[in-house]
């Protein structure tokens, strides 16, 4: 499934780019992210506790930064295994443009889920994915903007 969105962030393109490569900020932004450990500059391992309504599943997996074109764009890819729940994979093409109020961040997410969540939760998968990517980018924007946001 594909999702897209745009955020205006009150910071320069360079500042946003730096944040996009900062594991600490990424961890704060990824909903339910319990740990994000750096393997290399572009590779991380992550533990994410996803909670959608009654469903609670822990995903472990990798996050990679690809197609780096500083400070304009990159692709954030990830895949996680959630045991019985199944798995999730996705990529987000993120690009930055200068904007009157700072920087315009445009994302295009392509995500897939598999296993039990795909099999029995199809009516909710789209909404959940949208909610999680909105959460990620809005938190990301908030963290850069220095706004208070309590990560779950």
């Amino acid at each position: 499934m594909k999702l897209e969105g745009t955020y205006i962030i009150n910071a320069s393109k360079e500042e946003v780019w730096k944040a996009m490569n900062d594991p600490a900020i990424l961890q704060q932004a990824i909903p339910g992210c319990e740990s994000l450990e750096k393997i290399s500059d572009t590779q991380f391992t992550a533990v994410i506790k996803a909670k959608i309504g009654p469903v609670k599943a822990s995903f472990t997996g990798e996050v990679n930064l690809e197609n780096l074109n500083p400070p304009h764009s990159y692709t954030l890819t990830g895949e996680g295994k959630g045991g019985l729940a199944g798995f999730a994979t996705g990529s987000a093409d993120v690009s930055l443009n200068e904007h009157n109020d700072g920087t315009e961040l445009i994302y295009l997410v392509d995500a897939q889920v598999g296993g039990k969540i795909a099999q029995i939760g199809s009516r909710l998968v789209g909404g959940a994915a949208k909610k999680l990517s909105d959460k990620f980018f809005s938190r990301f924007a908030a963290v850069i903007n220095g706004e208070e946001e309590n990560p779950e």
Partner: peptide, 14 residues
């Protein structure tokens, strides 16, 4: 009605 089916599927284990 939601909680028990979710637990049965292994999607929650409080």
């Amino acid at each position: 009605m939601t909680m028990l089916p979710t637990m049965k599927q292994g999607l929650a284990a409080p």
